[in-house]
């Protein structure tokens, strides 16, 4: 029985990266903060390069708590979108070309967001990952964590609830 030949790895990577890039670069606030995403298969890691404009306490100095919160919210929202768009990206139903042309899929809406500050954010790059704890047709619950130099010493964690975009 002849199996279908798998797609060349470059084609797969290009499609995934184009979809991710369209998702992230379409939002001005993410560009403003300088947030980008690193992808390994379907796993995403958010990156926040340090910049003076992100400082919240000039005497320590430390990253603004609001920036940390925003970073976690972005990570949670993109990870959630990415996980529900993934099947469509893989099947080719979602065409990265139309995405880059500006027709973005609707993003989930934040219902509520709770952030715990565990350590002060140092003037260094920060990283974050999120896990979709539950994703239903209407609501989703997502947990996110941010760290800097040590993965085991998180600077903040958050739980967010989202209203899923309507399928039409």
């Amino acid at each position: 029985m002849a199996r279908e030949r798998p797609e060349p790895v470059q084609v797969v990577k290009q499609r995934r990266d184009a979809a991710l890039n369209a998702l992230v670069s379409g939002v001005p606030y993410m560009t403003y903060l300088g947030v980008s995403f690193d992808r390994r298969g379907d796993e995403l890691t958010a990156l926040l390069p340090f910049d003076d404009k992100l400082i919240g306490n000039p005497f320590l100095p430390a990253i603004h708590g609001g920036v940390t919160a925003a970073f976690l919210e972005i990570t949670a929202m993109i990870t959630l979108s990415w996980s529900y768009l993934w099947p469509e990206i893989e099947s080719g139903k979602l065409d990265p070309d139309t995405l880059t042309a500006g027709s973005l899929p609707r993003l989930p809406k934040t219902i509520d967001f709770t952030v715990d500050y565990l350590r002060s954010g140092l003037p260094r790059d920060a990283y974050a990952r999120a896990r979709v704890t539950r994703s239903g047709r209407r609501y989703a619950s997502v947990h996110a964590q941010a760290w800097q130099d040590n993965r085991d010493r998180p600077i903040a964690q958050a739980t967010a609830h989202f209203l899923m975009p309507r399928e039409d």
Binding site: Y29, M30, L33, H64, G66, A69, A70, F71, E73, I74
Partner: peptide
């Protein structure tokens, strides 16, 4: 973006 509102609320 909600994140900007978070920054405002925090401040």
């Amino acid at each position: 973006h909600g994140g900007a509102v978070s920054a405002l609320m925090d401040t």
